[in-house]
Design a protein around this nucleic acid. Structure first.
Lengths: 248, 248
DNA sequence: ATCTATCTGAGCGCTGGCGCACAAAAGGCG
DNA sequence: CGCCTTTTGTGCGCCAGCGCTCAGATAGAT
Protein backbone atom coordinates (compact mmCIF):
# COMPACT_ATOMS: atom_id res chain seq x y z
CA UNK A 1 0.00 0.00 0.00
CA UNK A 2 2.25 2.76 -1.24
CA UNK A 3 1.59 6.01 0.57
CA UNK A 4 3.64 8.06 -1.83
CA UNK A 5 4.24 7.27 -5.43
CA UNK A 6 7.62 8.82 -5.90
CA UNK A 7 10.75 7.61 -4.24
CA UNK A 8 12.42 10.92 -3.52
CA UNK A 9 12.02 10.23 0.15
CA UNK A 10 14.28 7.27 -0.29
CA UNK A 11 17.15 9.73 -0.24
CA UNK A 12 16.42 10.20 3.46
CA UNK A 13 17.96 6.82 4.05
CA UNK A 14 21.70 7.32 4.03
CA UNK A 15 22.50 3.99 2.47
CA UNK A 16 20.11 4.44 -0.43
CA UNK A 17 21.28 8.01 -0.85
CA UNK A 18 24.83 6.78 -1.19
CA UNK A 19 24.12 4.66 -4.24
CA UNK A 20 25.36 5.71 -7.67
CA UNK A 21 22.60 6.89 -9.98
CA UNK A 22 22.54 3.79 -12.15
CA UNK A 23 22.28 1.39 -9.24
CA UNK A 24 19.57 3.42 -7.58
CA UNK A 25 17.69 3.63 -10.84
CA UNK A 26 17.49 -0.15 -11.04
CA UNK A 27 16.22 -0.44 -7.47
CA UNK A 28 13.82 2.47 -7.66
CA UNK A 29 10.81 0.67 -9.03
CA UNK A 30 11.15 -2.01 -6.38
CA UNK A 31 11.22 0.38 -3.45
CA UNK A 32 7.90 0.41 -1.72
CA UNK A 33 7.15 3.07 0.91
CA UNK A 34 5.62 1.75 4.10
CA UNK A 35 4.43 3.40 7.27
CA UNK A 36 5.56 1.64 10.43
CA UNK A 37 3.51 2.10 13.61
CA UNK A 38 5.10 1.91 17.03
CA UNK A 39 5.42 -1.66 18.25
CA UNK A 40 4.89 -3.34 14.90
CA UNK A 41 6.87 -6.52 14.54
CA UNK A 42 8.73 -6.32 11.23
CA UNK A 43 9.86 -9.86 11.52
CA UNK A 44 9.71 -12.56 14.11
CA UNK A 45 12.61 -14.66 15.29
CA UNK A 46 13.23 -17.52 12.87
CA UNK A 47 10.61 -16.35 10.40
CA UNK A 48 11.70 -16.24 6.78
CA UNK A 49 11.99 -12.71 5.53
CA UNK A 50 10.29 -11.40 2.46
CA UNK A 51 11.55 -7.84 2.44
CA UNK A 52 14.56 -5.83 3.47
CA UNK A 53 13.72 -2.47 5.09
CA UNK A 54 15.43 0.87 4.66
CA UNK A 55 14.04 3.19 7.36
CA UNK A 56 13.74 6.87 6.58
CA UNK A 57 12.12 8.25 9.71
CA UNK A 58 11.35 5.08 11.69
CA UNK A 59 13.68 3.42 14.16
CA UNK A 60 13.75 -0.33 14.38
CA UNK A 61 15.09 -2.36 17.24
CA UNK A 62 16.63 -5.81 16.99
CA UNK A 63 15.42 -7.74 19.98
CA UNK A 64 16.50 -11.06 21.28
CA UNK A 65 13.75 -13.05 22.99
CA UNK A 66 14.70 -15.74 25.48
CA UNK A 67 12.73 -18.90 26.12
CA UNK A 68 11.36 -17.47 29.35
CA UNK A 69 10.19 -14.33 27.57
CA UNK A 70 12.97 -12.03 28.78
CA UNK A 71 14.16 -9.69 26.07
CA UNK A 72 17.33 -7.78 25.29
CA UNK A 73 18.22 -5.50 22.45
CA UNK A 74 21.26 -6.31 20.36
CA UNK A 75 21.10 -3.52 17.82
CA UNK A 76 19.15 -0.66 16.34
CA UNK A 77 18.65 0.73 12.86
CA UNK A 78 17.25 4.01 11.59
CA UNK A 79 17.85 6.13 8.54
CA UNK A 80 21.50 5.23 8.88
CA UNK A 81 20.94 1.62 7.98
CA UNK A 82 18.69 -1.25 7.09
CA UNK A 83 16.93 -4.21 8.61
CA UNK A 84 17.18 -7.72 7.25
CA UNK A 85 20.82 -8.52 6.61
CA UNK A 86 19.96 -12.21 6.69
CA UNK A 87 18.46 -11.84 3.22
CA UNK A 88 21.71 -11.16 1.46
CA UNK A 89 23.90 -13.03 3.91
CA UNK A 90 22.17 -16.23 2.89
CA UNK A 91 20.42 -17.28 6.07
CA UNK A 92 16.98 -15.90 5.15
CA UNK A 93 16.27 -15.37 8.84
CA UNK A 94 17.93 -14.72 12.17
CA UNK A 95 17.11 -15.81 15.70
CA UNK A 96 15.86 -12.39 16.72
CA UNK A 97 12.87 -10.13 16.40
CA UNK A 98 12.71 -6.73 14.73
CA UNK A 99 10.28 -4.25 16.29
CA UNK A 100 9.41 -0.68 15.47
CA UNK A 101 10.74 1.38 18.33
CA UNK A 102 9.84 4.76 16.95
CA UNK A 103 7.00 5.11 14.48
CA UNK A 104 7.83 6.44 11.04
CA UNK A 105 8.40 5.50 7.46
CA UNK A 106 10.62 3.14 5.57
CA UNK A 107 11.11 1.71 2.13
CA UNK A 108 11.06 -1.98 1.64
CA UNK A 109 12.49 -4.05 -1.15
CA UNK A 110 11.61 -7.57 -2.15
CA UNK A 111 14.12 -10.30 -1.53
CA UNK A 112 14.39 -11.10 -5.21
CA UNK A 113 15.27 -7.61 -6.36
CA UNK A 114 17.65 -7.26 -3.45
CA UNK A 115 19.50 -10.42 -4.25
CA UNK A 116 19.79 -9.57 -7.89
CA UNK A 117 21.33 -6.19 -7.26
CA UNK A 118 23.52 -7.59 -4.51
CA UNK A 119 24.79 -10.27 -6.86
CA UNK A 120 26.14 -7.67 -9.27
CA UNK A 121 28.95 -7.07 -6.82
CA UNK A 122 28.96 -3.31 -7.22
CA UNK A 123 28.53 -0.44 -4.77
CA UNK A 124 25.28 -1.82 -3.42
CA UNK A 125 26.97 -5.02 -2.33
CA UNK A 126 29.85 -3.11 -0.88
CA UNK A 127 27.61 -0.85 1.18
CA UNK A 128 25.46 -3.70 2.40
CA UNK A 129 28.45 -5.70 3.54
CA UNK A 130 30.03 -2.73 5.23
CA UNK A 131 26.81 -2.00 7.00
CA UNK A 132 26.69 -5.60 8.16
CA UNK A 133 30.14 -5.29 9.59
CA UNK A 134 29.00 -2.15 11.36
CA UNK A 135 26.08 -4.07 12.79
CA UNK A 136 28.49 -6.68 14.12
CA UNK A 137 30.39 -3.93 15.88
CA UNK A 138 27.16 -2.69 17.39
CA UNK A 139 26.29 -6.14 18.66
CA UNK A 140 29.80 -6.78 19.98
CA UNK A 141 29.78 -3.54 21.86
CA UNK A 142 26.40 -4.40 23.33
CA UNK A 143 27.81 -7.69 24.54
CA UNK A 144 30.73 -5.97 26.23
CA UNK A 145 28.61 -3.16 27.60
CA UNK A 146 26.19 -5.66 29.11
CA UNK A 147 29.05 -7.31 30.87
CA UNK A 148 30.96 -4.36 32.19
CA UNK A 149 28.86 -1.22 32.55
CA UNK A 150 26.14 0.11 34.83
CA UNK A 151 22.50 0.51 33.93
CA UNK A 152 22.89 4.27 34.08
CA UNK A 153 25.66 4.25 31.52
CA UNK A 154 23.77 1.89 29.29
CA UNK A 155 20.70 4.06 29.50
CA UNK A 156 22.79 7.06 28.48
CA UNK A 157 24.16 5.17 25.54
CA UNK A 158 20.73 4.07 24.49
CA UNK A 159 19.38 7.61 24.69
CA UNK A 160 22.25 9.00 22.66
CA UNK A 161 21.85 6.40 19.95
CA UNK A 162 18.18 7.23 19.73
CA UNK A 163 18.92 10.90 19.62
CA UNK A 164 21.23 10.31 16.69
CA UNK A 165 18.52 8.49 14.79
CA UNK A 166 15.66 10.78 15.67
CA UNK A 167 14.65 14.02 14.06
CA UNK A 168 13.73 15.41 17.46
CA UNK A 169 14.95 15.32 21.05
CA UNK A 170 11.61 14.00 22.27
CA UNK A 171 11.39 10.28 22.68
CA UNK A 172 8.09 8.42 23.06
CA UNK A 173 9.04 5.61 25.37
CA UNK A 174 8.15 4.39 28.86
CA UNK A 175 10.68 3.18 31.40
CA UNK A 176 9.17 -0.24 31.10
CA UNK A 177 9.83 -0.44 27.39
CA UNK A 178 13.36 0.79 27.81
CA UNK A 179 13.87 -1.88 30.46
CA UNK A 180 12.84 -4.51 27.92
CA UNK A 181 15.37 -3.12 25.48
CA UNK A 182 18.21 -3.02 27.92
CA UNK A 183 17.27 -6.34 29.46
CA UNK A 184 16.98 -4.92 32.98
CA UNK A 185 14.22 -4.19 35.52
CA UNK A 186 11.83 -1.34 35.01
CA UNK A 187 12.77 -0.02 38.47
CA UNK A 188 16.40 0.02 37.45
CA UNK A 189 15.58 2.26 34.52
CA UNK A 190 13.42 4.52 36.70
CA UNK A 191 16.28 5.02 39.13
CA UNK A 192 18.86 5.64 36.44
CA UNK A 193 16.53 8.01 34.62
CA UNK A 194 15.78 9.75 37.90
CA UNK A 195 19.49 10.38 38.41
CA UNK A 196 19.88 11.80 34.94
CA UNK A 197 16.90 14.03 35.50
CA UNK A 198 18.32 15.30 38.80
CA UNK A 199 21.47 16.21 36.95
CA UNK A 200 19.35 18.10 34.45
CA UNK A 201 20.38 16.01 31.46
CA UNK A 202 16.91 14.77 30.63
CA UNK A 203 13.31 15.40 31.57
CA UNK A 204 10.47 12.96 31.42
CA UNK A 205 6.78 12.57 32.10
CA UNK A 206 4.65 9.52 31.51
CA UNK A 207 6.14 8.02 28.43
CA UNK A 208 7.96 10.96 26.96
CA UNK A 209 11.62 11.61 27.49
CA UNK A 210 13.21 14.88 26.45
CA UNK A 211 16.92 15.10 26.06
CA UNK A 212 18.09 18.42 27.41
CA UNK A 213 21.85 18.35 27.43
CA UNK A 214 23.56 16.19 24.89
CA UNK A 215 27.06 17.28 25.81
CA UNK A 216 26.60 16.26 29.40
CA UNK A 217 25.07 12.95 28.42
CA UNK A 218 28.17 12.28 26.38
CA UNK A 219 30.12 12.92 29.53
CA UNK A 220 28.30 10.25 31.50
CA UNK A 221 28.12 7.56 28.80
CA UNK A 222 30.68 4.77 28.59
CA UNK A 223 33.23 4.48 25.80
CA UNK A 224 30.94 2.03 23.96
CA UNK A 225 28.93 4.82 22.41
CA UNK A 226 31.83 6.55 20.71
CA UNK A 227 33.48 3.35 19.54
CA UNK A 228 30.41 2.30 17.59
CA UNK A 229 29.88 5.73 16.16
CA UNK A 230 33.46 6.00 14.97
CA UNK A 231 33.20 2.60 13.40
CA UNK A 232 30.19 3.77 11.39
CA UNK A 233 32.16 6.68 10.05
CA UNK A 234 35.15 4.53 9.27
CA UNK A 235 33.13 1.89 7.45
CA UNK A 236 30.55 4.02 5.73
CA UNK A 237 31.82 7.56 6.00
CA UNK A 238 33.10 7.61 2.48
CA UNK A 239 29.63 6.76 1.23
CA UNK A 240 27.32 8.76 3.45
CA UNK A 241 27.53 12.46 4.13
CA UNK A 242 29.66 13.61 7.05
CA UNK A 243 27.93 14.13 10.36
CA UNK A 244 25.09 12.03 9.14
CA UNK A 245 23.76 11.88 12.65
CA UNK A 246 23.67 15.59 13.31
CA UNK A 247 20.60 16.81 15.14
CA UNK A 248 19.23 20.35 14.88
CA UNK B 1 57.34 -20.58 6.56
CA UNK B 2 55.29 -23.51 5.32
CA UNK B 3 55.56 -26.49 7.61
CA UNK B 4 53.99 -28.86 5.14
CA UNK B 5 54.05 -28.52 1.40
CA UNK B 6 50.78 -30.13 0.53
CA UNK B 7 47.42 -28.75 1.43
CA UNK B 8 45.61 -31.97 2.22
CA UNK B 9 45.34 -30.84 5.81
CA UNK B 10 43.22 -27.98 4.60
CA UNK B 11 40.37 -30.46 4.44
CA UNK B 12 40.41 -30.47 8.22
CA UNK B 13 38.80 -27.07 8.09
CA UNK B 14 35.13 -27.62 7.47
CA UNK B 15 34.65 -24.52 5.38
CA UNK B 16 37.53 -25.29 3.05
CA UNK B 17 36.41 -28.89 2.86
CA UNK B 18 33.01 -27.76 1.73
CA UNK B 19 34.29 -26.03 -1.39
CA UNK B 20 33.69 -27.49 -4.82
CA UNK B 21 36.83 -28.94 -6.44
CA UNK B 22 37.34 -26.09 -8.89
CA UNK B 23 37.08 -23.35 -6.31
CA UNK B 24 39.41 -25.13 -3.95
CA UNK B 25 41.88 -25.71 -6.76
CA UNK B 26 42.13 -21.99 -7.37
CA UNK B 27 42.73 -21.25 -3.71
CA UNK B 28 45.09 -24.14 -3.08
CA UNK B 29 48.33 -22.47 -4.08
CA UNK B 30 47.55 -19.49 -1.90
CA UNK B 31 46.89 -21.50 1.26
CA UNK B 32 49.86 -21.30 3.55
CA UNK B 33 50.06 -23.60 6.57
CA UNK B 34 51.00 -21.88 9.81
CA UNK B 35 51.56 -23.11 13.32
CA UNK B 36 49.89 -20.99 15.98
CA UNK B 37 51.31 -21.04 19.51
CA UNK B 38 49.12 -20.43 22.53
CA UNK B 39 48.61 -16.76 23.23
CA UNK B 40 49.77 -15.51 19.86
CA UNK B 41 47.92 -12.41 18.73
CA UNK B 42 46.71 -13.03 15.20
CA UNK B 43 45.58 -9.48 14.83
CA UNK B 44 45.29 -6.50 17.07
CA UNK B 45 42.23 -4.30 17.41
CA UNK B 46 42.10 -1.79 14.60
CA UNK B 47 45.11 -3.21 12.82
CA UNK B 48 44.72 -3.76 9.09
CA UNK B 49 44.61 -7.42 8.26
CA UNK B 50 46.83 -9.09 5.74
CA UNK B 51 45.56 -12.64 5.92
CA UNK B 52 42.41 -14.54 6.60
CA UNK B 53 42.89 -17.67 8.76
CA UNK B 54 41.24 -21.06 8.44
CA UNK B 55 42.09 -23.01 11.60
CA UNK B 56 42.49 -26.76 11.35
CA UNK B 57 43.49 -27.73 14.88
CA UNK B 58 43.93 -24.34 16.55
CA UNK B 59 41.19 -22.39 18.33
CA UNK B 60 41.13 -18.65 18.06
CA UNK B 61 39.31 -16.30 20.36
CA UNK B 62 37.86 -12.93 19.42
CA UNK B 63 38.53 -10.65 22.33
CA UNK B 64 37.26 -7.21 22.99
CA UNK B 65 39.67 -4.99 24.91
CA UNK B 66 38.33 -2.03 26.84
CA UNK B 67 40.17 1.21 27.43
CA UNK B 68 40.91 0.20 31.02
CA UNK B 69 42.36 -3.12 29.91
CA UNK B 70 39.37 -5.28 30.83
CA UNK B 71 38.68 -7.96 28.25
CA UNK B 72 35.67 -9.97 27.13
CA UNK B 73 35.29 -12.60 24.48
CA UNK B 74 32.71 -12.08 21.79
CA UNK B 75 33.31 -15.16 19.67
CA UNK B 76 35.46 -18.16 18.94
CA UNK B 77 36.57 -19.97 15.81
CA UNK B 78 38.15 -23.36 15.25
CA UNK B 79 38.10 -25.84 12.41
CA UNK B 80 34.44 -24.94 11.96
CA UNK B 81 35.23 -21.46 10.75
CA UNK B 82 37.63 -18.70 9.94
CA UNK B 83 39.11 -15.55 11.38
CA UNK B 84 39.16 -12.24 9.59
CA UNK B 85 35.70 -11.57 8.19
CA UNK B 86 36.58 -7.87 7.97
CA UNK B 87 38.69 -8.65 4.90
CA UNK B 88 35.80 -9.59 2.69
CA UNK B 89 33.21 -7.45 4.44
CA UNK B 90 35.15 -4.41 3.38
CA UNK B 91 36.29 -2.94 6.65
CA UNK B 92 39.82 -4.38 6.57
CA UNK B 93 39.83 -4.46 10.35
CA UNK B 94 37.57 -4.71 13.38
CA UNK B 95 37.74 -3.17 16.84
CA UNK B 96 38.74 -6.43 18.50
CA UNK B 97 41.71 -8.66 18.99
CA UNK B 98 42.15 -12.25 17.82
CA UNK B 99 44.22 -14.48 20.09
CA UNK B 100 45.19 -18.13 19.89
CA UNK B 101 43.33 -19.83 22.67
CA UNK B 102 44.43 -23.35 21.93
CA UNK B 103 47.69 -23.96 20.09
CA UNK B 104 47.49 -25.72 16.74
CA UNK B 105 47.59 -25.22 13.02
CA UNK B 106 45.78 -23.14 10.48
CA UNK B 107 45.95 -22.15 6.86
CA UNK B 108 46.13 -18.56 5.95
CA UNK B 109 45.28 -16.83 2.70
CA UNK B 110 46.37 -13.47 1.47
CA UNK B 111 43.80 -10.71 1.28
CA UNK B 112 44.22 -10.36 -2.47
CA UNK B 113 43.54 -13.99 -3.32
CA UNK B 114 40.66 -14.00 -0.87
CA UNK B 115 39.01 -10.98 -2.39
CA UNK B 116 39.41 -12.28 -5.88
CA UNK B 117 37.73 -15.58 -5.15
CA UNK B 118 35.08 -13.88 -3.03
CA UNK B 119 34.31 -11.53 -5.88
CA UNK B 120 33.39 -14.40 -8.17
CA UNK B 121 30.17 -14.74 -6.23
CA UNK B 122 30.19 -18.53 -6.16
CA UNK B 123 30.13 -21.06 -3.33
CA UNK B 124 33.08 -19.49 -1.58
CA UNK B 125 31.27 -16.20 -1.23
CA UNK B 126 28.14 -17.96 -0.12
CA UNK B 127 29.94 -19.92 2.59
CA UNK B 128 31.85 -16.92 3.84
CA UNK B 129 28.73 -14.82 4.14
CA UNK B 130 26.82 -17.58 5.84
CA UNK B 131 29.67 -18.06 8.27
CA UNK B 132 29.61 -14.35 8.98
CA UNK B 133 25.94 -14.52 9.78
CA UNK B 134 26.70 -17.41 12.11
CA UNK B 135 29.34 -15.28 13.81
CA UNK B 136 26.75 -12.57 14.32
CA UNK B 137 24.53 -15.10 16.04
CA UNK B 138 27.41 -16.12 18.26
CA UNK B 139 28.06 -12.53 19.23
CA UNK B 140 24.39 -11.76 19.78
CA UNK B 141 24.03 -14.75 22.03
CA UNK B 142 27.08 -13.69 23.98
CA UNK B 143 25.50 -10.28 24.49
CA UNK B 144 22.31 -11.81 25.81
CA UNK B 145 24.12 -14.42 27.90
CA UNK B 146 26.23 -11.71 29.50
CA UNK B 147 23.11 -9.89 30.45
CA UNK B 148 20.97 -12.69 31.78
CA UNK B 149 22.93 -15.73 32.90
CA UNK B 150 25.16 -16.76 35.78
CA UNK B 151 28.90 -17.23 35.63
CA UNK B 152 28.47 -20.94 36.15
CA UNK B 153 26.20 -21.26 33.15
CA UNK B 154 28.50 -19.17 31.03
CA UNK B 155 31.46 -21.26 32.05
CA UNK B 156 29.57 -24.38 31.06
CA UNK B 157 28.77 -22.89 27.71
CA UNK B 158 32.35 -21.87 27.18
CA UNK B 159 33.60 -25.36 28.05
CA UNK B 160 31.15 -27.02 25.71
CA UNK B 161 32.05 -24.76 22.82
CA UNK B 162 35.70 -25.56 23.39
CA UNK B 163 34.94 -29.24 23.60
CA UNK B 164 33.23 -29.03 20.24
CA UNK B 165 36.25 -27.44 18.65
CA UNK B 166 38.89 -29.56 20.33
CA UNK B 167 40.17 -32.95 19.35
CA UNK B 168 40.42 -33.92 23.00
CA UNK B 169 38.55 -33.39 26.27
CA UNK B 170 41.64 -31.89 27.90
CA UNK B 171 41.80 -28.15 27.88
CA UNK B 172 45.00 -26.19 28.64
CA UNK B 173 43.65 -23.13 30.38
CA UNK B 174 43.91 -21.50 33.79
CA UNK B 175 40.98 -20.03 35.67
CA UNK B 176 42.55 -16.66 35.24
CA UNK B 177 42.60 -16.91 31.46
CA UNK B 178 39.02 -18.13 31.38
CA UNK B 179 38.07 -15.17 33.54
CA UNK B 180 39.57 -12.85 30.94
CA UNK B 181 37.53 -14.56 28.25
CA UNK B 182 34.28 -14.39 30.13
CA UNK B 183 34.97 -10.91 31.39
CA UNK B 184 34.54 -11.88 35.06
CA UNK B 185 36.77 -12.26 38.13
CA UNK B 186 39.21 -15.11 38.43
CA UNK B 187 37.62 -16.04 41.79
CA UNK B 188 34.26 -16.25 40.13
CA UNK B 189 35.58 -18.81 37.69
CA UNK B 190 37.28 -20.76 40.49
CA UNK B 191 34.03 -21.00 42.40
CA UNK B 192 31.98 -21.96 39.36
CA UNK B 193 34.59 -24.51 38.31
CA UNK B 194 34.71 -25.83 41.86
CA UNK B 195 30.97 -26.45 41.75
CA UNK B 196 31.20 -28.27 38.46
CA UNK B 197 34.02 -30.39 39.84
CA UNK B 198 32.01 -31.28 42.95
CA UNK B 199 29.23 -32.43 40.68
CA UNK B 200 31.78 -34.59 38.85
CA UNK B 201 31.30 -32.90 35.49
CA UNK B 202 34.88 -31.70 35.16
CA UNK B 203 38.25 -32.18 36.81
CA UNK B 204 41.09 -29.72 36.90
CA UNK B 205 44.62 -29.22 38.18
CA UNK B 206 46.84 -26.24 37.61
CA UNK B 207 45.94 -25.11 34.16
CA UNK B 208 44.40 -28.26 32.76
CA UNK B 209 40.70 -28.88 32.69
CA UNK B 210 39.29 -32.27 31.79
CA UNK B 211 35.71 -32.58 30.74
CA UNK B 212 34.28 -35.73 32.26
CA UNK B 213 30.57 -35.72 31.59
CA UNK B 214 29.39 -33.90 28.53
CA UNK B 215 25.78 -34.90 28.92
CA UNK B 216 25.57 -33.46 32.40
CA UNK B 217 27.28 -30.27 31.28
CA UNK B 218 24.61 -29.88 28.67
CA UNK B 219 22.10 -30.17 31.48
CA UNK B 220 23.58 -27.24 33.38
CA UNK B 221 24.24 -24.91 30.45
CA UNK B 222 21.80 -22.20 29.43
CA UNK B 223 19.83 -22.25 26.20
CA UNK B 224 22.43 -20.05 24.55
CA UNK B 225 24.66 -22.98 23.74
CA UNK B 226 22.11 -24.93 21.77
CA UNK B 227 20.74 -21.92 19.93
CA UNK B 228 24.12 -21.08 18.46
CA UNK B 229 24.87 -24.66 17.57
CA UNK B 230 21.57 -25.10 15.80
CA UNK B 231 22.15 -21.93 13.88
CA UNK B 232 25.45 -23.29 12.63
CA UNK B 233 23.72 -26.38 11.32
CA UNK B 234 20.97 -24.37 9.75
CA UNK B 235 23.30 -21.94 8.02
CA UNK B 236 26.14 -24.23 7.07
CA UNK B 237 24.79 -27.74 7.53
CA UNK B 238 24.20 -28.20 3.85
CA UNK B 239 27.86 -27.48 3.18
CA UNK B 240 29.67 -29.18 6.03
CA UNK B 241 29.30 -32.78 7.10
CA UNK B 242 26.67 -33.56 9.68
CA UNK B 243 27.78 -33.72 13.30
CA UNK B 244 30.84 -31.78 12.39
CA UNK B 245 31.53 -31.15 16.00
CA UNK B 246 31.40 -34.75 17.18
CA UNK B 247 34.09 -35.69 19.67
CA UNK B 248 35.38 -39.24 20.15
C1' DA C 1 -15.79 15.41 36.54
C1' DT C 2 -14.90 10.87 37.63
C1' DC C 3 -13.16 6.58 36.82
C1' DT C 4 -9.59 3.60 35.21
C1' DA C 5 -5.60 2.00 33.20
C1' DT C 6 -0.98 3.16 32.87
C1' DC C 7 3.19 4.99 34.48
C1' DT C 8 6.56 6.21 38.01
C1' DG C 9 8.46 6.39 42.92
C1' DA C 10 9.77 4.08 46.85
C1' DG C 11 10.78 0.58 50.20
C1' DC C 12 11.76 -3.81 51.61
C1' DG C 13 15.09 -8.19 51.76
C1' DC C 14 18.16 -11.04 48.95
C1' DT C 15 21.92 -12.59 46.19
C1' DG C 16 25.56 -12.71 42.70
C1' DG C 17 29.48 -10.84 41.52
C1' DC C 18 33.12 -7.29 42.69
C1' DG C 19 37.61 -5.75 44.98
C1' DC C 20 40.98 -6.93 48.03
C1' DA C 21 44.09 -9.71 50.65
C1' DC C 22 46.34 -13.75 51.92
C1' DA C 23 47.15 -18.79 52.49
C1' DA C 24 47.86 -23.23 50.58
C1' DA C 25 49.14 -26.25 46.93
C1' DA C 26 51.58 -27.56 42.68
C1' DG C 27 54.89 -27.40 39.46
C1' DG C 28 59.51 -25.56 37.38
C1' DC C 29 64.22 -24.57 37.83
C1' DG C 30 68.70 -23.98 39.44
C1' DC D 1 66.43 -30.89 47.05
C1' DG D 2 64.83 -26.40 48.27
C1' DC D 3 63.46 -21.97 46.37
C1' DC D 4 60.20 -19.35 43.63
C1' DT D 5 56.55 -18.62 40.57
C1' DT D 6 52.13 -19.74 39.24
C1' DT D 7 47.75 -21.41 40.21
C1' DT D 8 43.87 -22.20 43.13
C1' DG D 9 41.09 -21.81 47.65
C1' DT D 10 38.99 -18.88 51.02
C1' DG D 11 37.26 -15.21 53.56
C1' DC D 12 36.07 -10.84 54.32
C1' DG D 13 33.04 -6.36 53.32
C1' DC D 14 30.43 -3.99 49.67
C1' DC D 15 27.09 -2.77 46.31
C1' DA D 16 24.37 -3.06 42.03
C1' DG D 17 20.69 -5.08 40.44
C1' DC D 18 16.85 -8.46 41.27
C1' DG D 19 12.05 -9.78 42.78
C1' DC D 20 8.20 -8.26 45.07
C1' DT D 21 4.82 -5.00 46.78
C1' DC D 22 2.23 -0.97 47.17
C1' DA D 23 1.29 4.00 46.82
C1' DG D 24 0.95 8.14 44.32
C1' DA D 25 0.61 10.60 39.95
C1' DT D 26 -1.09 11.35 35.35
C1' DA D 27 -3.50 11.02 31.07
C1' DG D 28 -7.36 9.29 28.61
C1' DA D 29 -11.91 7.60 28.35
C1' DT D 30 -16.78 7.86 29.61
Amino acid sequence: MPVVKNTDDAQLNHLLAALPADEFARLKSGLEPVSLPLGKVIYESGEHLEYIYFPTTAIISLLYVMENGATAEIGMAGNDGLVGVALFMGGSTTPNRAVVQSAGNAFRLRSKALKFEFGLGATFQNILLRYTQYLMTQISQTAVCNRLHSVEQQLCRWLLINHDLLQTNKLIMTHDLIANMLGVRREGVSIAAGNLQKKGLIKYVRGTITMLDRKELEGVVCECYAVVKQEYDRLLGKYVSKNSSKIP
